[in-house]
Amino acid sequence: MRRPPLASRYALTAAACMVTHNLVMIAGDAAGIVMPVAVLLSFCLCVLLGFFLHSRYTFAVAGDARSLLRYTVAMAANVPLTIVLLWLFLVSLHLPMAAASPAATLVLLVVNFFASRWAILGGRRQGRPA
């Protein structure tokens, strides 16, 4: 059976991470968790989920400790960017978290593709069996 194109595989993995992130952010807001703590909680969950799915499914490589470290560092750039974007949407534009979190997530989507690809593949070619 032929594998779906890279863009489709990335979109499915990104969607799983986006849903996880937004659920954590919205539930955290509803539970009264301060936004930076919710961002960090989401970061931890999404790094593990994203690395596993991107390694095995999106890029079809065996993930190792080095690529996990690169992926964690690459995704760590999302933490301050997410906080700034959420502040912009929540404070400046007065959007509710249910709108602000998905908006911030969409802004980071393209950046995350390139960061994920660099982190997981490193110098390897895509498509090496996992």
Rank of each mutant, 00 (worst) to 15 (best):
L69D: 00
F89G: 07
D29P: 02
D29I: 05
L81Q: 01
I33M: 14
V47A: 05
V34M: 15
F89V: 06
L86P: 07
Y71L: 02
V24I: 15
V91G: 00
L53W: 12
D29N: 12
L85P: 00
L95N: 01
V73L: 13
A27S: 13
R70L: 02
R66L: 13
F52H: 11
F89P: 10
Y57L: 03
H94K: 08
V79Q: 04
A27V: 12
L68G: 01
L81E: 01
F89C: 11
I83C: 12
D29Q: 08
Y71G: 04
H54C: 03
A31V: 11
L53A: 04
V61I: 15
L90N: 09
L23E: 13
L90M: 14
V79T: 07
P36C: 05
A38L: 08
V47L: 03
F43M: 07
A76T: 14
T58Q: 03
V91Y: 01
W87H: 08
V37D: 02
V39Y: 11
A74V: 03
L40K: 03
L40W: 11
G63L: 08
V79H: 06
A30I: 03
M75A: 09
A74Y: 01
A31D: 06
V24D: 04
C44K: 03
A27F: 12
A77V: 12
A27Q: 11
A38K: 09
H94N: 12
Y57T: 02
V34Y: 14
D64E: 09
F51V: 07
R70T: 00
S92F: 14
A62N: 04
V39G: 06
S92P: 00
L45N: 03
V37S: 04
W87C: 01
S92D: 08
L53M: 12
H94T: 11
A31N: 07
F52C: 02
V47W: 08
A30E: 05
H94W: 06
G63H: 11
A65M: 09
L90V: 14
S55E: 07
L40M: 15
G50Y: 01
F89I: 06
T58R: 10
T58W: 07
L95R: 02
